[in-house]
Simulated assay, not measured.
Amino acid sequence: MNISSGSELIGACEKQGITIGEFAIRQESEETGISYEEIWNRMKEALKVMESSTSKGVSEKVISVSGLIGGDAYKMGKYLKEGRSVGGSVTTRAMAYALACSEVNASMGKIVACPTAGACGILPAAVMTMKEEHGIGEKDIILGLFAAGAVGAVIAQNATISGAEGGCQAECGSAAAMAACAIVQMMGGTPGMCLDAGAIVFKNTLGLVCDPIAGLVEVPCAKRNAQGVLSAIGAADMVLAGVESRIPFDDTVEAMYSIGRAMPESLRETGIGGLAGTAAGKILAKRIFGEK
């Protein structure tokens, strides 16, 4: 993508009078020579995978290969139907779908890495919740996914989306920022508002470490996906209400990257520190891999 920053992305969209999603498709077509229609259809196929991975874990108990996680999305789905949710149907549905994708991923099912497999539940949960709770149509969902992709590309160019390099703030944080941008666009927000939502997400996920139990993308990853989509929804609501981020999106990305570089190796996907280094974490790891 010939855009190197969030501010450039906003400027290009405002100059052309188009959304981030529309800009992303045009740029992709221009750079690759692939037709607009073909690019659209590829994202449509990705959306089908998202729909499948979010629904599977909610409708049936999906257990990971290791046995560390599984069945939580199914529990959330039942809880949603009972109508007793403290946070309402939007938050409960979003968490259920995020958990579902994570469980499908850990059971070797098919998911969309957006931007990574470890953070695969956040964006799908956001768009499917928008579809079911707010009646957002397929066209706007697909455009929202392209907006998320454009923002993810900016993050990847200027920082990292790798937990091994920047901690979970780079994975679940980036995914939540992408999801927030998609939600704001789907709800009629401007490109500037989209990136304000992404900035707010990053401000609340800075410093989040990557500390997977036994080095597997399961615990605490699945539940961080569930909380990540809530962060996206909250940030979207704030900017749609007129709240602005005092710190620009590009600055929050820079901060995330600098914090990631400062993190010790034990807190960057090695399965050594943080929760992985606790007594319970070590016991779970031994249960999976045996005594060392």
Results as ranks from 00 to 15, higher is better:
residue 3 I to N: 08
residue 5 S to V: 09
residue 8 E to N: 02
residue 10 I to K: 02
residue 12 A to N: 13
residue 14 E to N: 15
residue 15 K to F: 14
residue 17 G to Y: 13
residue 18 I to S: 12
residue 20 I to V: 10
residue 20 I to C: 03
residue 21 G to N: 05
residue 24 A to F: 15
residue 29 S to R: 08
residue 30 E to N: 15
residue 33 G to L: 13
residue 39 I to P: 02
residue 40 W to M: 08
residue 41 N to A: 14
residue 41 N to Y: 14
residue 42 R to Y: 12
residue 44 K to I: 13
residue 49 V to Q: 02
residue 49 V to N: 06
residue 50 M to R: 01
residue 53 S to G: 05
residue 55 S to Q: 10
residue 57 G to W: 00
residue 57 G to I: 00
residue 59 S to K: 06
residue 61 K to V: 04
residue 61 K to I: 01
residue 62 V to D: 09
residue 63 I to F: 00
residue 66 S to D: 04
residue 69 I to H: 00
residue 72 D to N: 07
residue 78 K to I: 11
residue 82 E to P: 01
residue 90 V to W: 06
residue 91 T to K: 11
residue 93 R to C: 10
residue 93 R to Y: 02
residue 93 R to S: 14
residue 95 M to L: 03
residue 99 L to C: 14
residue 99 L to R: 11
residue 102 S to K: 10
residue 107 S to Y: 09
residue 111 I to Q: 09
residue 114 C to F: 14
residue 114 C to E: 14
residue 116 T to N: 04
residue 117 A to K: 05
residue 120 C to E: 05
residue 121 G to S: 10
residue 122 I to L: 08
residue 122 I to Y: 06
residue 123 L to I: 13
residue 125 A to G: 06
residue 130 M to C: 14
residue 131 K to D: 14
residue 133 E to G: 10
residue 142 I to A: 03
residue 143 L to A: 13
residue 144 G to W: 15
residue 144 G to Q: 08
residue 146 F to I: 04
residue 146 F to M: 10
residue 147 A to P: 10
residue 148 A to Q: 10
residue 148 A to Y: 06
residue 149 G to E: 12
residue 153 A to F: 12
residue 156 A to W: 06
residue 157 Q to A: 10
residue 159 A to I: 04
residue 162 S to T: 11
residue 165 E to N: 14
residue 166 G to Q: 03
residue 170 A to F: 02
residue 173 G to M: 06
residue 175 A to R: 00
residue 177 A to M: 05
residue 181 C to A: 15
residue 182 A to F: 01
residue 194 C to A: 09
residue 194 C to I: 07
residue 194 C to T: 03
residue 194 C to K: 01
residue 197 A to Q: 04
residue 199 A to K: 06
residue 199 A to M: 09
residue 200 I to G: 07
residue 203 K to C: 15
residue 205 T to M: 13
residue 207 G to C: 03
residue 208 L to S: 08
residue 213 I to P: 09
residue 213 I to C: 04
residue 214 A to K: 00
residue 217 V to F: 03
residue 218 E to L: 00
residue 219 V to D: 09
residue 219 V to Y: 04
residue 220 P to F: 05
residue 223 K to E: 07
residue 224 R to V: 01
residue 224 R to A: 01
residue 228 G to K: 02
residue 240 L to P: 09
residue 245 S to W: 07
residue 245 S to R: 01
residue 247 I to A: 09
residue 252 T to Y: 03
residue 254 E to I: 11
residue 257 Y to L: 05
residue 258 S to H: 12
residue 258 S to D: 07
residue 261 R to K: 12
residue 262 A to I: 09
residue 263 M to T: 05
residue 264 P to N: 04
residue 270 T to H: 08
residue 273 G to D: 13
residue 276 A to N: 07
residue 281 G to C: 10
residue 285 A to W: 11
residue 288 I to V: 15
residue 290 G to I: 02
